[in-house]
Amino acid sequence: MAAVARGRALRIDGRDNVATIVEGVAAGDVVDVDGGVPVVAVEAIPAGHKVALADVEPGGQIVKYGEPIGVATRSIRRGGLVHVHNVASQRGRGDLGR
């Protein structure tokens, strides 16, 4: 059986549910997480982008640096790419008319 490719990601704070991918990974790659447990990428994730370390329900907070950076707009699977397609900012949103 072919060896599974391994990637690496950096988790900054123990509260974070995302980690930053160091070199781009493909679906099925095992990603070792500095400061966390390994996760299997469920899709391709480019370098500098974020992988989910846990399942997140719509409306759930995304946490990086131990601080909220936005809210999930749809279900995010552990190992999935976390980016503008499934996360929304909660700040500076004149369009929300708060």
């Binding site: 995304i62 936005g70 900012s89 500076g92 949103r93 004149g94 929300l96």
Partner: peptide, 19 residues
């Protein structure tokens, strides 16, 4: 929504998701 410029398209391509 500030997101048109913050983060910028370049920031987003570099992996930054929100302001």
């Amino acid at each position: 929504d500030i997101r048109g410029a913050q983060p910028s398209l370049g920031n987003i391509a570099g992996g930054l998701t929100t302001i």
